Amino acid sequence: MTVRVMLVSPAMTVDLREARFGGLGPLDESGVRAAAAAVHDVPRADLLLRGSSLRCRETAEALGLRAEAVEALADLHVGDWAGRTLAEVGESEPEALALWLRDPAAAPHGGESLRQLSVRVGQWLESLPARRVLAVVEPAVVRAVTIVALGLAPETFWRLDVGPLTLTELSGRQGRWNLHCGRPLGGSGS
């Protein structure tokens, strides 16, 4: 049986603009407006899910979705780096940041490695029943699901760009997935 997995990345937030780890903040005004404008572009689904972050919840709500939070779809756990900007970490821990960016098994922040994230979301992906699933999830989750589904090398994680309020679609079944990526919802996706 075929499964269709539709992943929507959250709308814009101050945290995204500032390249801040952890996505702890709410949607900003432009994010709320963009999500509200995209309501009619949201595909139909049998199962509505979301990551546990505030911006995933607020994006789902702004899109008119009553989505269930699923821990397997939580953002990458970044440990001590949560709430800090990429620039701050780069300045205070340049070697740790460089290691993290080149080695998918590294977790110098004390949180979860990219490999661990991929295992977590891969188990979720392979457990899905044959149906249409729509999930509002963080960009890291979109990247990890894509890598797992297509059997890509974990090192490609940072080469996948996921813009705000974009739709990435996978269709297939265990071991055989096809990808349609990055369609903006509501026109601009910003």
Score class of each variant (00 low, 15 high):
Leu167Ile: 09
Ala35Val: 00
Ser190Met: 07
Gly182Ile: 02
Leu99Asn: 03
Ala96Lys: 08
Ser113Arg: 02
Val148Gly: 01
Glu95Phe: 12
Pro43Arg: 11
Leu165Ile: 00
Glu68Ala: 08
Val5Lys: 01
Ala34Gly: 05
Leu165Lys: 00
Ala140Arg: 06
Val39Pro: 13
Ala36Glu: 15
Asp80Arg: 15
Gly79Leu: 05
Arg20Met: 02
Ala36Asn: 07
Pro94Glu: 06
Met12Val: 04
Ala60Leu: 04
Glu61Gly: 02
Ala34Lys: 08
Ser92Cys: 10
Leu167Phe: 14
Ser53Asn: 05
Gln174Val: 14
Glu91Pro: 02
Val133Glu: 04
Gly90Val: 04
Arg50Tyr: 04
Ala107Tyr: 06
Arg115Gln: 11
Leu125Val: 05
Gly186Pro: 06
Val162Ser: 10
Ala67Glu: 04
Glu61Phe: 04
Leu125Gln: 01
Leu48Trp: 03
Glu29Ser: 03
Trp158Val: 10
Leu179His: 09
Thr166Leu: 01
Ala37Ile: 02
Thr168Gly: 01
Thr59Trp: 00
Leu65Met: 04
Ser127Arg: 07
Ser30Thr: 08
Val5Trp: 04
Met6Tyr: 10
Ala87Tyr: 02
Asp80Cys: 12
Arg17Phe: 05
Arg55Cys: 07
Leu101Met: 13
Leu117His: 08
Gly31Ala: 04
Arg115Pro: 11
Leu24Cys: 08
Gln174His: 02
Gly163Ala: 11
Asp161Leu: 08
Arg143Tyr: 11
Glu18Ala: 15
Thr13Leu: 01
Val3Phe: 00
Pro108Lys: 11
Val39Asp: 09
Ala72Asn: 10
Ser53Ile: 03
Ala98Glu: 14
Val162His: 08
Arg20Ala: 06
Gly110Asn: 12
Ala60Arg: 03
Arg131Leu: 05
His40Ser: 14
Arg50Asp: 03
Gly110Asp: 13
Leu47Val: 15
Gly187Lys: 10
Pro154Gly: 05
Arg176Leu: 10
Thr13Cys: 00
Ala144Cys: 12
Gly151Glu: 11
Val32Phe: 00
Val148Leu: 01
Val39Lys: 13
Gly110Val: 13
Ala34Glu: 10
Leu150Thr: 11
Arg131Ser: 13
Val14Asn: 12
Glu112Trp: 07
Pro104Ser: 06
Val142Gln: 01
Ser190Tyr: 05
Gly182Asn: 08
Trp158Gln: 09
Leu16Met: 15
Ala96Glu: 11
Ser118Ala: 15
Ser30Tyr: 05
Leu7Met: 01
Thr146His: 02
Gly110Cys: 05
Ser188Val: 03
Gly187Ser: 14
Arg132His: 10
Ser53Leu: 14
Ala106Cys: 15
Val133Leu: 01
Gln116Met: 11
Pro94Trp: 06
Ser113Phe: 04
Leu114Trp: 03
Glu91Ala: 14
Glu29Gln: 10
Asp15Val: 01
Gly122Lys: 01
Met1Gly: 11
Met1Asp: 07
Ala19Ser: 15
Glu29Val: 00
Trp100Asn: 02
Ala69Phe: 09
Asp80Ser: 14
Trp158Met: 13
Val119Ala: 06
Val78Met: 14
Gly110Ser: 12
Leu49His: 09
Ala69Trp: 09
Val14His: 09
Ala60Phe: 07
Asp103Ala: 06
Val133His: 11
Glu71Phe: 02
Arg183Asn: 11
Leu128Trp: 14
Met1Lys: 05
Val3Gln: 04
Leu16Thr: 02
Leu7Gln: 05
Val3Ser: 06
Leu86Asp: 04
Pro129Cys: 00
